[in-house]
Design a binder for these strands. Structure first.
Length: 521
DNA sequence: GGAGCAGTTGGTGCA
DNA sequence: CTGCACCAACTGCTC
């Protein structure tokens, strides 16, 4: 009988610290004196269909390299396997004589379906499956149970629910060095097999190197922990942190940019949470929703609602989403996506997004409002797809949740509060330095015109060699006019929603119908 | 069941 | 520079 193997399957959670499922596999290997293997699966056939831009593929590739390095340091390694999980697993179960498979709970609908299928395959092969919650602070199902079976739909309600729960799990240490007997022998046959095991290069993901922007936020656990440390030394800043008071258009990020690391699980939310708590406890500090811990709890909030709401990332069939008659003008969409709406503040943000893969949260507000209820009246679902492609931190639940919010389709209802594509940015960048960085066409425009270049006299435009409508686009809509029309359309959509709601309330329930039928007889 | 209040982060104009 | 009323008026939750 060959030695058995305990396998940990990395998907998100690309880290060694605070990884309970990983520790579980290692514990099993050491207790039973069997092999341990950590795997990551890449399905070459679906890579080209995934909405992942070049910068995020690079982030993933970097994260896998660091994961492998960190595993090598504890006397192991990462085995990157190519293929579909549904064919890979039955092969590996046999080839490696697998006894245990561990992985982190993933609540995205796609992952839930995938993991259920893999669990069935494991069961068929006699492999024990162990799943652990470590991507979120709370088990989403526990939160829902505590709220009476449905997800809380306001942040404040969410806060009150988690106060009834026990504190989040304390973060766990990375595993110690593994015993030599956990390391399987790999003969040349296995290495030459279709699995190969090496970390993918960015070319393996089909990335054109020319498409890559500057690498401002390299992926990986080591990077994540360094970035966390750099944040944690700023104790006063953390204690005073208020999200609405941070700047969307500073030249360097005004917030932590830990989101990409949380998205891929290079950083544990539990570790972040308790490190922050250690700093704010015994100090005067800000509180949720605006505090830094408050931001982590927004993530939890969206994870809970997203996990429990069918079609959460769509308008149709989404029970919490206001049905709004968006018009998907593709000319508007591509102008927005490519940063040529003619509104410099909007275009600067969209170009930063495409080039660098990260934009400030309030910048996301400004461009999301502009695309949907504010100006262009294009569906939030299309904006969501663009963010999904370009953002390093693109996260299914958070992306959908925030688009629902910003388009006033759910969670947020004061649709008459519209961001001005001109005034909003001025508050924190009077001179438009941010615009000049990302929209260099306008580099010679003075503060009085930089947010509204169409107002500059033609003689001035000529003098700086930037004709509006030729060298930089004319604005595609007149904000002062369209936002008022859009508020009226929103008002109508909300009236409609109320009407539909009332009809459903008046409709007799099944039991009432039953009683009626009896009476009739 | 209805009134009152709060809601992570709007804009404008005025004191 | 800051604070405030006003704009027109949303929903969800609490009492």
């Amino acid at each position: 009988m060959t030695t058995r193997t305990a396998v940990h399957w990395f998907r998100k959670g690309l880290r060694l610290h605070d990884n309970p499922a990983l520790l579980e596999a290692i514990k099993h290997a050491e207790e039973n004196k069997c092999f341990f293997r950590a795997i990551f699966i890449i399905d070459p056939n679906i890579i080209k269909f995934m909405k992942v831009g070049s910068n995020r593929w690079r982030f993933l590739a970097q994260s896998l390299v660091q994961l492998n390095e960190n595993l090598i340091a504890i006397n192991s390694r990462l085995y990157v396997v190519r293929g579909s999980p549904y064919t890979v697993f039955p092969d590996l179960f046999k080839l490696w004589n697998v006894s245990v498979l561990t992985f982190e709970v993933d609540t995205e609908p796609y992952s839930v379906t995938r993991d259920e299928r893999v669990e069935k395959l494991a069961e068929k092969a006699g492999v024990k499956v162990i799943q652990k919650v470590s991507h979120t602070l709370y088990n989403v199902h526990t939160v829902v149970r505590m709220n009476g079976g449905s997800p809380p739909l306001t942040y404040q309600k969410f806060l009150s629910v988690i106060q009834l729960l026990s504190n989040p799990r304390q973060p766990l240490k990375a595993p110690d060095k593994l015993n030599d007997y956990t390391k399987p022998h790999i003969d040349s046959n296995e290495l030459a097999s279709k699995f190969c095991y090496d970390c993918p290069t960015i070319e393996d993901f089909g990335v054109e190197v020319t498409e890559l922007g500057p690498c401002l936020f390299p992926g990986g656990e080591t990077e994540a922990l360094q970035r966390l440390d750099a944040t944690l030394v700023r104790k006063q800043w953390i204690c005073k942190f208020e999200k609405p008071n941070t700047s969307p258009n500073s030249l360097e990020p005004s917030t932590t940019v830990l989101s990409p690391y949380l998205k891929f699980g290079c950083l544990s939310p539990n570790l972040f949470y308790y490190k922050l708590k250690g700093i704010i406890d015994n100090n005067v500090h800000t509180k949720p929703p605006v505090s830094l811990i408050g931001q982590l709890l927004w993530r939890e909030f969206y994870y809970v609602v997203a996990a429990m709401t069918p079609n959460f990332n769509k308008m149709e069939g989404n029970s919490i989403c206001c049905q709004i008659p968006w018009v998907n003008n593709l000319t508007y969409l591509s102008a927005w996506k490519e940063g040529r709406t003619g509104y410099p503040f909007i275009d600067a943000i969209m170009r930063q997004l495409k080039q660098e893969g990260w934009i400030h949260h309030l910048a996301r507000h400004a461009v999301a409002c502009f695309l949907t209820r504010g100006d262009l009246w294009v569906s939030w679902e299309l904006g969501q797809e663009v963010f999904e492609e370009y953002l390093l931190d693109a996260d299914w639940a958070l992306n959908a949740g925030n688009w629902l919010w910003l388009s006033a389709s759910a969670f947020f209802h004061q649709f008459f509060r519209v961001y001005s594509p001109v005034a909003f940015g001025k508050k924190t960048d009077k001179n438009g330095l941010y615009i000049k960085k990302y929209v260099p066409e306008l580099v010679r425009f003075p503060p009085e015109y930089i947010y509204e270049p169409w107002k500059a006299p033609v003689s001035f435009q000529k003098s700086v060699n930037c004709i509006i409508g030729k060298d930089y686009p004319n604005r595609i809509v007149v904000h002062e006019d369209v936002y008022k029309e859009n508020i009226a359309k929103m008002s109508l959509a909300y009236k409609n929603k109320r009407a539909v709601h009332e009809v459903s309330l008046k409709r007799p329930s099944t039991s009432e119908l039953h009683a009626k039928n009896k009476k009739a007889k």
